[in-house]
Design a protein around this nucleic acid. Structure first.
Lengths: 106, 106
DNA sequence: AATATATGCAACCGTTCGGTTTCACAAACA
DNA sequence: TGTTTGTGAAACCGAACGGTTGCATATATT
């Protein structure tokens, strides 16, 4: 089991769950009504999301409320940061040209 | 085959390849030397990255140069945007409180 | 022309994934 | 106390994943 954030958000259902509970904490049953699968399948997704700490569970009687750990989402943002430099900056055009020249020179 | 960006970046080797060619375009052979797998395995990764248009191939004689399609990376950024609102804004604390109250009220 | 180099593709293999069905268990309710 | 409700865990299944080995092909090099 790899179980890192990137593997967690790879599944479209899981991304939808994340978006759902980002608004407000929800129980597995409530979440499941939004999808075309069994409650158990949703439960498995929640387990994966919990394992990589993207989601936090809070028991309340017999109900369990799952809520998004927004902080963890920052890790994706941090990984993206290195590329943001490229697509934002003037960097892009000039340096890509230089890179290509260096390659062709050989 | 799902083959969307999120599935593409789920694999750590693929993320490493992306980071590598972000700096400058590279051939499959050159890329493969950076990893502990066969050239063919890298080739398969490149195929997946190409299919979801994260990477662009340019033939040059018998060599093929793969280069990152930085634009495509923005799509991840765009998906992340909805959560950035939450983790950045004052939004977070107050609204999470309200969301919880609304849940408990029932 | 013969050989070496750069590459992709197909077949195969063990593992993981995402789903279902069945069961177990604790909390709430009658 | 018996029943309903909310939930997780286990066993199973077909599909996809990530890797390897072997082969085919086109371009360079000798």
């Amino acid at each position: 089991m790899r179980r890192d954030i990137f593997q967690a958000i790879a599944d479209p259902t899981r991304r939808a769950i994340i978006a759902l509970i980002a608004v407000q904490a929800m129980t597995p049953n409530a979440i499941a009504t939004h999808f075309d699968t069994t409650r158990q399948a949703v439960s498995k997704h929640l387990r994966i999301l919990t394992e990589c700490e993207l989601v936090k569970a809070t028991q309340e009687g017999r109900e369990i409320h799952y809520q998004l750990e927004v902080q963890k989402m920052k890790e994706i943002d941090q990984w993206l940061a290195q590329f943001r430099k490229i697509w934002e900056g003037r960097f892009s055009e000039l340096d890509k040209l230089l890179a290509n020249m260096k390659t062709k020179k050989k």
